[in-house]
């Protein structure tokens, strides 16, 4: 029972701390899930994000379901997901009920400019941490540079890029097997 509460409240905290899209929650996830709770590793978070790109739904929700399922089965996945949406439900309902022109207030806009600048810094710092684990050889660097260039220069759907990268990874299988065999022969 305790685990389910823990999942709910941890993800509720993550929901409160996330501004903008799913990527902006990465720094918070690293802090809460990887460093504090150790529910997942940096590499697993990258996997969840990749899968979240080509499966339906909001990435933040997908990640919550993944982590929740890993630690508490199906009910854990549901608790984590309800946790991540709970703060939105409360905050948005209050704003929609009381402040019809919330986003027009200058104070909100100024605060948001500051928050967005901070989000850029947070994402940069998270990516540096992630890159250490995911960019380990020439192949991974090639995929990284390729996907980055294509997604910045051509407005192509991220889902397509993720699937293509997965296929390329699959194609390396014979090379990996060959290497493995060579190592087995000359230990």
């Amino acid at each position: 029972m305790n685990l389910y509460f823990d999942l709910f409240f941890t993800f509720a905290r993550i929901g409160v701390c996330t501004f903008g899209g799913g990527y902006a929650m990465l720094p918070i996830l690293q802090r809460e899930i990887v460093e504090k709770k150790q529910w997942a590793t940096d590499a697993e978070l990258t996997d969840y994000f990749a899968i979240g790109q080509c499966t339906p739904g909001v990435i933040a929700v997908n990640t919550a379901t993944f982590v929740g399922y890993k630690h508490g089965g199906i009910f854990g996945g549901i608790c984590a997901t309800l946790g991540v949406v709970f703060p939105s439900l409360v905050i948005i309902t209050v704003i929609a009920a009381c402040l019809s022109n919330f986003s027009d207030y200058p104070v909100v806009q100024h605060a948001l400019s500051g928050v967005n600048a901070c989000v850029v810094a947070l994402i940069a710092s998270s990516v540096l941490k992630l890159g250490k684990g995911t960019l380990v050889n020439l192949f991974s660097w090639a995929i990284f540079v390729g996907v980055l260039l294509i997604s910045v220069l051509v407005g192509i759907s991220p889902a397509v890029l993720v699937i293509a990268a997965g296929l390329l990874g699959y194609l390396t299988l014979p090379v990996q097997k060959w290497k493995q065999r060579k190592e087995d022969k000359n230990p």
């Binding site: 996997d47 790109q53 994402i123 990516v127 992630l130 995929i143 990268a165 296929l167």
Partner: peptide
């Protein structure tokens, strides 16, 4: 495992791309 070898760098690149587009709109 092999598929994830391709997915991980791609996922990292997409996060960088998202960061860059936020950076562009903020800066």
């Amino acid at each position: 495992e092999a598929v994830f070898c391709g997915l991980r760098p791609a996922s990292t690149a997409l996060i960088v791309a998202a960061g860059l587009s936020v950076a562009y709109s903020v800066f």
